[in-house]
């Protein structure tokens, strides 16, 4: 999870590093810690750090982790030659390592040589069938080849063994959404909320899924989860605030006019006022636009 303070720190470090100054090793460590995907920056500056032999000797034992990180980033940028050099350096240091073998498999993947990657992974899995990272690579490979159904099946099989792996649940939810199987995706999000109940973004994701599915019951549930997301993000999550407004409108439209049960508009107007306040702080020239949109929505709901 990336916290607000950590994100600020990352942005500051990234600006420094891109500007030529800054501590590259510290930046790389933060990228690893937050598990963000900044492949282009990491590949360029990480490789420059590794090319400089005096800077490299100062890194100590961290240097091997950085080799791995730079190798993956270079593969992500399709700088295959540089990635191969990094993997070669790791291979000479750790000749028997599974982790380096996995990197080699990823290199084949990046090259598009699925056969080689597949046979390498199968060999490795035969030696060590409980290596979860290898299973994940095979799932990713199926996904990369466009075989979403196969990837979903493999993930389901993987989750039977590794049930507590919430990254895999998230990936499965993403793939179900791509396949427009929203009910199944909703199940995955329920698992995610159970595993991390205080994470506002899972509540937000679940709410958006319910909103997409539509129907009065789902919309009402979505409104609840949007509200939970607002509560857990301290009212700072704009997407959840807009979600409340959208849900209110959708509920009114679904119900149709003239039905006697009335949903409260308090939540709508509250969310609207917070949105306007945020716009006044951060984007004053769009305040008029947003006020007129929100007012129209509110009027439509009251009528």
């Amino acid at each position: 999870m990336v916290g607000a303070t950590e994100e600020m720190e990352l942005q500051k470090l990234e600006r420094d590093v891109e500007g030529g100054g800054g501590d590259v090793a510290q930046y790389l460590a933060l990228v690893r810690k937050l598990r963000v995907r900044r492949s282009s920056t990491v590949a360029r500056h990480g490789l420059a750090l590794l090319n400089n032999s005096s800077a490299r000797s100062k890194l100590g034992a961290d240097v091997w982790t950085i080799y791995e990180q730079v190798a993956i980033a270079a593969m992500d940028c399709h700088a295959l030659e540089a990635a191969k050099e990094c993997i070669g350096a790791l291979r000479t240091k750790f000749p028997e390592s599974m982790r380096v073998a996995r990197l080699e498999g990823m290199w084949w993947e990046a090259k598009g040589a699925w056969q080689q990657a597949e046979s390498l992974y199968s060999d490795l899995l035969a030696d060590n069938p409980s290596d979860s990272a290898l299973h994940k690579r095979r799932i990713a490979m199926a996904k990369a080849q466009g075989n979403l159904i196969g990837a979903v099946e493999a993930t389901n099989k993987y989750l039977e063994t590794f049930m507590a792996d919430h990254d895999a649940w998230r990936e499965l939810a993403d793939m179900y959404i791509l396949l427009q199987m929203y009910k199944q995706a909703a199940f995955c999000f329920e698992e995610l909320i159970l595993s991390q109940p205080t994470n506002a973004l899972y509540h937000l994701g679940y709410a958006e899924l319910l909103y997409t599915m539509g129907g009065l019951d789902n919309l009402r549930a979505a409104r609840k989860y949007y509200a939970a997301a607002i509560e857990m993000s301290g009212g700072q999550n704009m997407r959840a605030l807009f979600g409340i407004c959208m849900c209110g409108t959708a509920i009114t439209q679904t119900k149709g006019r003239g039905r006697d049960e009335k949903d409260s508009v308090d939540l709508l107007s509250l969310a609207g006022s917070v949105i306007v306040k945020q716009y006044k702080e951060k984007c004053p020239n769009k305040v008029d636009l947003i006020t007129s949109i929100l007012d129209k929505q509110l009027v439509a709901n009251i009528a």
């Binding site: 607000a4 996904k143 990369a144 895999a168 973004l201």
Partner: peptide, 22 residues
């Protein structure tokens, strides 16, 4: 607190284990 200003979650980590390159 999960909803404190410094601590609130702004982004999920990229799912790097399932990274694809194409």
């Amino acid at each position: 607190l999960p909803d404190s200003k410094e601590n609130r979650v702004v982004a999920l980590p990229a799912n790097l284990d399932f990274m694809t390159f194409n």
